[in-house]
């Protein structure tokens, strides 16, 4: 049955977009959960006193930041199953299975890997700026008080770094909310995918553009919440100056 009036379409569209947005949010939170700590590890690598390690890490960051996230998504999703697997089978002589699997969960895992890695590289540079911006005297004060390197980092440097990096991190995290839509390219069923479905035809609605446009409201609302959250956090750390 074709739903022709807006009032008929609205509940169906909202329902579908909600499902898509849950997938969007899942990708967003999983990416944050992975990229926030991984970025710290990468930033330590890029500040290492071992020149070799520093070089490798900086090259990786250059590649990840320098190429489109959309291409990275496609490479990470398709390469293992479509390129590596046949190649390995040819040299090994028996069948192997190293693809992500065709289902939604396979696509989600691949997208999460791509996003975590990509965002960790961006975060690492913000962290590095934050850490190097803490005056050297803070570290020296910790040293003369007999504290260990990890005590100095976690008890002295970290909070000062966090305070410094809130504005650039807020920028990056708001961009991440919108970047999750790139996962559409590997057919992850996030909110853009859900909105587009009504152009081709789904659940009795076809040829409709407005559901796709309407997805922007979801992004806008969620980013509004994040903006308030970051303002609150900034204010929370207003009690000291760095």
């Amino acid at each position: 049955m074709e739903l022709t009036t807006f009032s008929q379409q609205l509940p169906v569209v909202i329902q579908a977009l909600n499902v898509g947005f849950v997938q969007t949010l899942k990708l967003f939170f999983v990416t944050l959960l992975g990229a926030l700590p991984l970025g710290l590890v990468i930033s330590f690598g890029s500040m290492s006193r071992f020149r070799g390690l520093r070089g490798v890490v900086k090259t990786i960051v250059w590649i990840v930041r320098g190429s489109p996230l959309m291409i990275q998504l496609m490479i990470i999703y398709y390469f293992p199953g479509l390129v590596l697997q046949p190649f390995l089978e040819q040299i090994l002589g028996y069948s192997v299975n190293i693809g992500w699997g065709g289902g939604e969960s396979g696509r989600f895992t691949a997208a999460a890997v791509a996003f975590i890695f990509n965002y960790a590289c961006y975060f690492s540079e913000i962290y590095r700026g934050g850490i190097q911006g803490v005056p050297i005297g803070q570290q020296e004060a910790g040293q003369v008080l007999g504290l260990s390197k990890s005590q100095i980092f976690f008890k002295i440097t970290l909070l000062q770094m966090v305070k410094r990096i809130i504005p650039p991190m807020a920028n990056e995290i708001i961009t991440l909310v919108k970047d999750t839509s790139l996962a559409r390219i590997i057919a992850l069923q996030e909110i853009i995918w859900a909105g587009q479905a009504f152009m081709k035809g789904s659940q009795g609605i076809s040829g409709q553009l407005w559901p796709l446009f309407f997805t922007a409201v979801y992004y806008l609302a969620f980013n509004g919440v994040l903006t308030v959250l970051f303002a609150w956090l900034e204010q929370k750390l207003d009690y000291f100056k760095v």
């Binding site: 005056p135 005297g137 803070q138 020296e140 004060a141 040293q143 003369v144 007999g146 002295i156 909070l159 000062q160 305070k163 000291f240 100056k241 760095v242």
Partner: peptide
């Protein structure tokens, strides 16, 4: 070894937080 000595810096270097 450091604990034998204490150091007060020219720029204080208190922990701001």
């Amino acid at each position: 070894n450091r604990l034998h000595f204490g150091l007060v810096f020219q720029s204080f270097n208190l922990f701001p937080q």
